[in-house]
Design a binder for these strands. Structure first.
Length: 948
RNA sequence: GCAGGAUUAGCUCGAAGGUCGAGCCCGCGAUCGAUAAUCGCGAGGUGUUGGUUCGAUUCCAACAUCCUGCACCA
């Protein structure tokens, strides 16, 4: 008889090699065909809801690893919630409007754009956004993300745009909105405001001048020494400013000093000059009084609220105020900064603090208006030399140089740009609201949210607390227009709810494009401006895209049946504290009075192996689509699960390879091993827990513990703990321990024996538990395993329709206690004994005493404490150690130093040809002369069964 | 500059005021009945400098390096 054919070797068509890149698309097709997402919705209908609201990625390129991290995490959350029994929908979204796309389209269109109608430009932008929405959608699906992809939300649809506009009107009608000045980058050539992203820094040669401003105030208020010098020697007091933009001097309204830096007064022949101490030497040298002595020294704050004469404008027309500002630096210039509120962001802020007039006297073409005859009407750069001459003629110019520095230029026409204060729309953070202000309400709402990690609360609170009013207007085309009519008489915006309602309705049917058609004009027909005017113009500005995306959950609640308010979770990168988390909070408080999210989770940034931020331009990026194509989408998912996403995460080719190795361990040690040994098993053959050998009970209790941990970790979003624990379970507990030991029973026992069926039952229950527990992460593989498990017991069509296992599922009965402290204690001891035995076997192996462990026998000499446990499991020990014989002895009492001694020697008897154990009984059975007593029993039973 | 975060084995992680630990990687070996698998053994670590403490990788302070967001370059 062929002994080998009497062995129950594992058998399965579940391939060791996953071939993920080839097989995953087939799985995706199957999910698509069965309508998996909607089947899950159906299956959970009526259950408690859990809504993760998707933050919309920007549709302007293929996905990067950060996107993959983000979407996989969300997929883990959504799938695990569904499997925990919640009704957890997932509607992905895209952010489609905004500057980056408009810039790309601009580049494509070139000069043509300036001749095109807004509607045509918008159509081009729409096509561009759609292209990348479609691409990203396919890429997200490819890495196994399941959601309502056929009907996502997108910020460029009529239903979305109309809610955005309605939300804006809500702010507008309640008095949150005002128009005001703000400095922006301005291209004189193209006559347009530029965004930061449209500014390129190029080298530019500028004149640079040192200009003196004469003090008008009484110098004694600053320092008596100044007064003494002045009175005794009749010298005027000056300060000196330094600038590279002489054309801004007509707008000079203040000179700024650093409050805490030390300033000195230098006595030159023609006057006394106040400059920063740290720069005094340099300034004095340049300005022609290198040896002027210091006659006074004082902190800059004493200069606050002093007055100076303007270098060329008369006192009646211009008074220059001394101010203090923290941004004044001591590395270049004079330590005194000329301040023109209409021509710089910091200057503007200073202007606000000191109530300086920010009116801009430079028009959209870059010409100075309302100036002195010398420079009136000149383009700013043309005005530079003229103003320098003017300074000279007034005796205000101390020094002049040319300087090469990097200066902002227009990305399109490459002309230098200027800063210019322009009219913009704002939402005031100080709008009165609910007993406080918009800002204080926002701060209160922040406290109601669970921030994860916890520092998020402090971070966003700081930002909301200090942020300026929200500038919501952009001089752009690709977005939702600020659809307001402006009175042609008084230039004031019309705020008529009836008209507003009509515009929203129009947007709801025809989209925001309708604003750019004649039809829009008719909406204001019959309306009256409070000034009496009845003719209106359409406002051309569009809304900040953050305002749009901030409305996303308002849109969902408006359009999805029974969506809860607020949502359960927002999950986005740390850059969204200032972005989407904030804009969503503000829009929702404005519209509904409360936060749109119960909790917010924040993954870290994706870095390369050197810890540098990943970026395409740097070339250190890992492309998730490429990994999916070469290694499998499952590997991307597993990588996401492996890292602690709350910190910055590292991604690299190397790491992905590592993950792929780990994947194989789970696939083989867990799934293939289980399936291979279950080929002749069905659910009705399962052995009840009470009848199982101790080790089978032990491994099932261990599995139940893992199941409980994993379920808890899903709730905590601690996916990396799941990854680590499952890995450990598969390799150490299951493969190296249980599976290795139980092989003997599975292979050599009679197929239907209790021992074999029990081991199969254990493997089956482990497999059933793990396939469910891992499904949210290893979505492809678990679904694949699921198909194989169908042969054992009927089940749902996809694992993603199933629920997580309970302890009773794992143990096979609800009457079995989950924990057995004594059993656990015993097995901890047994495993540590096993470790010592394995060590001893290795030594014997190194000394060439044995090869495989079955060639050995082991003698254990145990202390009084250890002995009873070993005694109780005496008959199992040889299987536990995978040796042929074990003898157990008590160590002589009194010798308490060594709890256990292990002695290894060659096994007695001969090797059984069938089970490879050594036995002194080999040859006793005449029928099967090369076989041990265990195998002969099996074989006899077998032939008996054969006869019957 | 402001705000927030990080630093533990080659990599990814976990724990904790009391000899840190896991998996992977690596080295050596076993096996060839889970075989492009499986098993065993081994090697290897708390950023720097101070402080609190009997004891600090953990608590505190400073420094360094890195990451994110914001501001700024007159």
């Amino acid at each position: 008889m062929d002994l080998k054919s009497s062995i129950n070797l594992p058998k399965t068509s579940f391939p060791m090699k996953a071939n993920l890149p080839q097989n995953e698309p087939k799985t995706l097709a199957r999910w698509e065909e069965m309508g998996l997402y909607h089947r899950i919705r159906q299956a959970r209908k009526g259950a408690k809801q859990y809504v993760l609201h998707d933050g919309p990625p920007y549709a302007n390129g293929p996905i990067h690893l950060g996107h993959a991290l983000n979407k996989c995490l969300k997929d883990f959350v959504v799938k695990s919630k569904n499997m925990a029994g919640f009704d957890a929908p997932y509607i992905p979204g895209w952010d489609c409007h905004g500057l980056p796309i408009e810039i790309k389209v601009d580049q494509k269109l070139g000069g043509k754009k300036l001749q095109m109608q807004p509607l045509d430009v918008r159509l081009e932008c729409r096509k561009y956004a759609k292209k990348f929405l479609d691409l990203q959608r396919e890429q997200f699906k490819r890495i196994g993300v399941v959601g309502r992809f056929e009907k996502p939300y997108s910020t460029m649809t009529p239903e979305y745009e109309s809610v955005v506009l309605a939300t804006f009107y809500n702010f507008f009608e309640k008095g949150f909105v005002y128009k005001g000045l703000r400095p922006v980058y301005w291209c004189m050539h193209d006559r347009t405001a530029l965004a930061e992203a449209e500014v390129e820094y190029e080298t530019h040669t500028s004149p640079t001048v040192w200009v003196k401003y004469k003090l008008q105030s009484d110098p004694r208020t600053i320092d008596p020494a100044l007064a003494d010098a002045r009175i005794h020697k009749d010298k005027p007091v000056f300060t000196i400013i330094w600038t590279t933009t002489p054309w801004t001097l007509p707008a000079s309204l203040a000179v700024a000093f650093h409050p805490d830096e030390e300033y000195v007064a230098l006595e030159a022949t023609d006057g006394i000059y106040i400059v920063a101490e740290k720069l005094a030497k340099n300034v004095a040298a340049k300005c022609g009084f290198p040896d002027a002595p210091v006659i006074a020294s004082f902190p800059g704050r004493l200069m606050e609220n002093t007055w100076f004469y303007h270098p060329f404008l008369p006192w009646e027309r211009r008074k220059v105020l001394g101010v203090v500002a923290d941004y004044v630096t001591m590395d270049t210039g004079t330590g005194v900064v000329h301040t023109a509120p209409s021509h710089g962001a910091e200057d503007f802020a200073t202007g606000v603090r000191y109530k300086l007039d920010p009116t801009c006297e430079v028009d959209s073409a870059g010409r100075i208006q309302n100036g002195l005859p010398e420079y009136d009407g000149l383009l700013v750069f043309k005005a530079n030399p003229v103003i320098i001459e003017l300074l000279k003629s007034r005796g205000a110019l101390l020094h002049e140089e040319k300087v090469e520095h990097s200066y902002p230029h227009c990305w399109r026409c490459h002309n230098p740009v200027i800063f210019r204060a322009t009219e913009q729309w704002f939402i005031s953070m100080e709008t009165p609201m609910g007993g406080g202000t918009f800002r204080t309400r926002a701060l209160e709402e922040i406290k109601k949210v669970k921030w994860d990690p916890a520092w998020g609360e402090e971070r966003i609170s700081n930002m909301v607390d200090t942020r300026p009013d929200w500038c919501i207007s952009r001089q752009r085309v690709w977005g939702v227009p600020i659809a307001v009519f402006v009175c042609t008489e008084c230039k004031k915006p019309l705020n008529d709810p009836a008209v507003n309602k009509k515009v929203v309705d129009l947007f709801a049917t025809k989209g925001a494009d309708a604003w750019y058609t004649r039809e829009a004009d008719t909406l204001a027909n019959g309306a009256k401006c409070p000034c009496g005017g009845g003719s209106f113009q359409r406002e051309a500005d569009i809304l900040d895209v953050w305002f749009e995306s901030g409305c996303s959950y308002l849109v969902e609640v408006e359009h999805e049946a029974n969506y809860p308010w607020p949502s359960d979770l927002y999950l986005e990168g740390g850059d969204q504290y200032r972005g989407w988390f904030m804009s969503s909070l503000l829009c929702s408080i404005g519209a509904k009075g409360s936060t749109p999210y119960k909790s917010v989770a924040t993954p870290g940034w994706t870095l390369d192996e050197q810890g540098r931020a990943m970026s395409k331009s740097r070339g250190n990026d890992v492309d998730p689509a490429d990994i999916a194509n070469r290694l499998g989408g499952e590997i991307v998912r597993l990588w996401v699960a492996s890292v602690d996403f709350r910190e910055d995460v590292v991604g690299s080719e190397n790491l992905m390879q590592r993950i792929a190795e780990n994947y194989r361990a789970v696939r083989n040690n867990l799934f293939k091993n289980c399936l291979g040994n279950l080929y002749d098993f069905t659910a009705d053959k399962a052995v009840p827990f009470e009848q199982m050998p101790a080790i089978d009970q032990y491994i099932l209790r261990l599995t139940a513990e893992v199941a409980a941990d994993v379920a808890r970790w899903y709730e905590e979003f601690a996916f990396h703990k799941i990854y680590q624990r499952v890995n450990h379970f598969c390799t150490v507990e299951l493969s190296a321990f249980y599976a290795d030991i139980v092989k003997d029973r599975l292979y050599t026992y009679a197929p239907n024996s209790l021992g074999r069926r029990s081991a199969q039952t254990a493997l089956w229950r482990i497999c059933e538990a793990m396939v469910r527990l891992l499904a949210p992460i290893m979505s492809f593989t678990c679904d694949e395993v699921w198909q194989y498990l169908g042969a054992i017991q009927a089940r749902e069509e996809s694992v993603h329709l199933a629920k997580f296992p309970s302890a009773a599922d794992v143990l096979g009965s609800s009457s079995v206690s989950t924990e057995d402290a004594q059993q656990l204690q015993e097995w901890t001891t047994l495993r540590s004994v096993r470790d010592q035995v394995l060590k001893a076997l290795e030594e014997a192996r190194n000394q060439k005493q044995i090869g495989k462990s079955l060639e050995a026998q082991v003698k254990l000499i145990a202390s009084d404490a250890m002995y009873p446990v070993l005694e109780r499991h005496r008959d199992e020990l040889r299987y536990l150690f995978i040796v042929s014989q074990v003898t157990l002895e008590k160590s002589p009492s009194g010798n308490g130093t060594n709890p256990l001694t292990v002695e290894v020697s060659k096994a007695d008897g001969q090797k059984c040809d069938r089970c490879w154990n050594y036995s002194v009984h080999v040859g006793e059975d005449k029928e099967y002369p090369t076989v041990c007593e265990r195998c002969s029993a099996v074989l006899n039973e077998w032939s008996l069964a054969g006869k019957a």
